[in-house]
Structure formats: structure tokens, C-alpha cells
Design a protein around this nucleic acid. Sequence first.
DNA 1: GCGACTTTGTACCTGCGTTCACAAGCGGTT
DNA 2: AACCGCTTGTGAACGCAGGTACAAAGTCGC
Lengths: 230, 230
Amino acid sequence: MTQSRPRIVPEATVARLAVYLRVLAGLADGGRSHVSSGELAAAAGVNPAGLRKDLSYLGPCGVRGVGYSVAGLQERLSAALGVERSRACVLVGMGRLGAALADYAGFASRGFEFVGLLDADPARVGDRVSGCTVRPVEELESVVAGTQASIGVITTPAEVAQSVCDRLVAAGVRSILNFAPVALSVPAGVDVRKVDLSVELQVLAFLDQQRDGGPPPVVVPVPAGAGGAR
Amino acid sequence: MTQSRPRIVPEATVARLAVYLRVLAGLADGGRSHVSSGELAAAAGVNPAGLRKDLSYLGPCGVRGVGYSVAGLQERLSAALGVERSRACVLVGMGRLGAALADYAGFASRGFEFVGLLDADPARVGDRVSGCTVRPVEELESVVAGTQASIGVITTPAEVAQSVCDRLVAAGVRSILNFAPVALSVPAGVDVRKVDLSVELQVLAFLDQQRDGGPPPVVVPVPAGAGGAR
DNA sequence: GCGACTTTGTACCTGCGTTCACAAGCGGTT
DNA sequence: AACCGCTTGTGAACGCAGGTACAAAGTCGC
């Protein structure tokens, strides 16, 4: 029974499921056949109860008193995450970041295959990266149509990200991973995930500052006190 | 009393403040002097009320009936995020991703300067990336000590990430940005942020699969049938 | 065959983040 | 000088995610 309706899986849980799947791969390589939620949670850096709750969204998949079957869980998670079948990805913007992503082994090993690499710069067109030839961005539509790509990755400058996004969506791509520092607007039914690298560093800088100088950056003259917080 | 204590700023808010700051830079370039919360929120891709609440953590910084001064807000946010003074960063693992990050213009323009690039591979030592020479990872401690780096970026393979992390912490680094697909364990007082690229793609794959299997036509087909999994 | 131990799965609770809605404040206008 | 419209700032409700604690269930030992 394909019970696709009953439980909706929170997005935060989905992200963790992917982490569990990777940890399981390591355990399988180590020859392990079973794992407890405690051990798996420790390796994934989460709370054991939270892990069990995450897995329970897929239905009962462990054995009480024993733990989880490594192989069984791998299969369950792979099916849930849709990693069973390989997914075709198109990447637009072959700068250094784009080149790094196209060549990232972590993608290929998880069923993500870059079938199209595009760039607007004629100097980059023709380069071969990770077994794929860079093509001019004008061919975006034909590449998407010809490869049935379902995922688009945007690593262009911010100025052109929206137009590239629009073209990807028009060509039929419904999942987009955006590295450009802009908020993309897309029609309903299209999913966008944004990775903003400089934001990550700025958050760290903020935490760093909060730790060092208790006094806030506000211009108000606060005499003293104001402990470090966090 | 006069001014309340430094309110604690939620981490989710901090991340958005960084986005606002970038949007403001664009507005300033465009010659704008004032913005309303609605317009700023639209550009940042968030809810206007949420934006106002975010900014309110810094104390009142707008003018009712008018909006926010672009220059004033930029200054306020820069101070709050600790972007006023430049921050020294050390990057370990000069693979393609590491090289892309070290050369990423978005970092330098926001006050993040890579003062140390390290790699374990002798073949990469000596390379010059973005005006900095790659040095052997053995010099990690001396580089951190000599440059007073406060942020460490880890782009090594997963196997060595924890040991690199331990050495960074021991050397005095208290903020770490981790791109390796492992959960790092650090002592209290050290902040770690993790960016997991393959997880992002897997979440998209999940959403993609969920979309295909559910909403489009009518209800769920086939009430009976075998082949569990899902 | 039975008891006890182990581990899962889940219900409850707590806290946070987000959204809605409204009062307060400022500028412009008459 | 007073009114009016616009926008901010904030109080309150909602929903969600995470954590704790406990009961169900299965295995192993005797």
C-alpha cells in the first residue's frame, strides 16, 4: 500500500534524513548490520529521540530491543528521498564555484548527475569539466528539454540569476538550488533552496562579536554589565 | 531603564539581517535614500512584519510615516553584524571548493579576509590563490597564531575534518564554518555552522518526488496493491 | 516457557519563530 | 494649528520543531 498521504514530512526532517543516509553508508562500509538510534544519532549530531521521530515519519522501520537494520534503513531512506533513480541536473554559471560543484564527488555518488553545464562567457564554453562540456547559455532551453533535467543549479552573478531562473522554470525545471545572493521569485509549484555563503560567515562574525564584546554595537552609552550571552 | 539590555537576537534573525544589508547596498548604489519595510521585505523575500521585528532587535531605527534611512540602516546593521572591522579567516583544504571560496568576491567585499590557506597535499602547497600562498597544513597552528585569525573554514575530506577542527580550536579559533559532511564536535564556547551541499540537492529531490506522486490529478490511484516502500 | 532487559515508537510539554492585527508617531497639507 | 494618511514598532495568537518521559514490543537468558 503506497500510503503517500497520511504523514507529511517536515522539511527539517528531510534534511536530516539525508544526513542519516550518509552515516549509514559509512556504517555499511564498516560491515555493521544493525545500529541503535543512540549510536546513529551521535554520528549524525542529533538527539536520539529526534532521530526516532524523524524515522517514524516513514513508518515503523526498526525492531524494538534490537535497533535498525543498516541495509533496511538505507533502502527505506533512499526510497523516501527519491535517490533511487538518478536525477539529471543543469548548472548555470561555470565560475570557480560552479566548477567546484560540477566536480563535487558527493553529488555523483548520490545519484545527481550534471548533464548540462552552461555559461555566458564564450571563453569558458567548450571547457570540459567532470566529463561534461560547457555550452553557451543560449542553449539552456534545448539542453533542459533534451536531457529532461529536473533540477537546476544557479551559480551566476546575482544580476542575471532571476532571468536564468525564469528561463529554467519556463523550460520545465521545478527544483532550483540557488547560490546567487538574491531572492528568486518563482511561480507556485516550483521549489527553490538558497545557499548563501557570505551569510554564513556573517552569522559567525556576529556570534564572535557577541562573545567578545558584551556591549552592544548600539550607540547608547551603557555603563557596564552586559555579560557575554550565549 | 533608559535603554533595555542588549536583547538577544535569534540566529535566524541574524541571518536575515545579513541579507538586508546586502539589499541595502544595492539600493544605495541606486541612489535611494529611504526605503519602506514593505519594499525592503519584498527584495529580501520575507514578510514585512517579520522584517520590522528583526530590525527592532537593534532598537528603533526607522522613522514612522517615512521608512528607513538607507545609509543609517546600513551603518546600524554593519555595526550589529560586526562587519565594521575586517575579520581574518583561515581555510583548510584547498580542493576545488576551497579554491572557489578563497577567491569568492562576496567574502572580501564584506570584510572577510583569507589570511591563511592550508592543504595537506604537497602538490598544492605553494600555489597562489587570490593573493595568498597555500601553505602546508602542518603550519596551521603558527598561521593561526601569527594572523590572529578568528574564523576557520573547513573544506577538507570528511575523514580529516574532525582532527583539523580540533587543531583549529586548540589554536584559538572559536568560529568554524564546516563544509565537510560530518558532524563536528567542539567544546562549549565554539560556534560551528555547517553547510552540506549534497543535503540541499537531496531535499530538492524529495520535494520533486513528493510533487509528482501527489497533488497534480485527482486522488491517490490504486487503493490496493503491493510493493510497500515509500 | 517465562521473566527481565533493551530499544523503539509516541504522547506530552516547552520554547521559539512567524504571522496577524493594532496602536503610536511623524510628515505633509490645508 | 489641526487633521489625515502613511509607516513603524509591538503585543498577542498561531503553528512548528525539539526535548523529555513513558509505554509497547521484541529478544535473550535461564
